[in-house]
């Protein structure tokens, strides 16, 4: 099997077959990370496209300081957060720009319920409520929670992706979980009382 580093070198030489292999290896990881952040399949598709285009364009600048997987996750996290910021700023301009899609009339920024396609059927409803509160976490807590709990990455790798220490990841994760529990209680004060 070709090493990731060799693939990046080949991509830098504009070999499309190397990009295809890298895509085969990482597209699911990139798409799933993006969908957890953006909670929308179309946006996740756009970010995935953007991530692989960036990899193709910046491959010649890759110096191997971080693992290729770390680099790809880092690009994905940054692109996803950028898109969230852009969407939030568009929402603020809603006074001037329509918040509804032209063709269907649906809300363009509706994130009230998100069904992650990979969640088990019996957990769908609970996962919807969890994703709703994940959406409200600060960027760092959101990143740590998504990468460790949804993507299932080890804390050491998450620390490399976010350019921090494993200890910091551990403490941010604890804070994120605590915040999620608080938010769940705030949004659903009557749940768990009598059923």
């Amino acid at each position: 099997m070709t090493k990731d580093e060799s693939l990046i070198e080949a991509i830098a030489r504009q070999e499309n077959s190397a990009l295809a292999i890298l895509y085969e290896r990482y597209s699911k990881k990139v798409y799933n990370t993006a969908i957890s952040y953006l909670q929308n399949a179309e946006d996740a598709e756009e970010v995935t496209q953007d991530v692989f285009t960036t990899i193709y364009q910046k491959a010649s600048k890759y110096r191997g300081e971080a693992k290729v997987s770390t680099w790809i996750y880092r690009v994905t996290v940054n692109k996803s957060l950028d898109m969230i910021r852009r969407k939030n700023s568009e929402k603020r301009k809603g006074f001037f720009v329509s918040l509804y899609k032209k063709d269907s009339g649906d809300l363009a920024y509706d994130q009230s319920t998100f069904d992650h396609p990979g969640v088990k059927l019996e957990h769908k409803e609970n996962a919807q409520q969890l994703f709703k509160v994940i959406n409200e976490l600060p960027d760092k807590q959101k990143s740590v929670f998504i990468l460790t709990q949804v993507e299932g990455l080890p804390q050491v790798e998450v620390a490399e992706i976010l350019n921090t220490t494993r200890k910091a990841v551990e403490s941010v994760l604890a804070r994120a979980k605590q915040n999620l529990r608080k938010k769940l209680e705030k949004y659903y004060p009557n749940r768990g009382d009598n059923n």
Partner: peptide, 14 residues
């Protein structure tokens, strides 16, 4: 239960 709802999550296909 809510916090554990992502256990065993599968990857979505692009």
């Amino acid at each position: 239960d809510i916090m554990g709802s992502l256990d065993g999550i599968q990857r979505a296909e692009p």
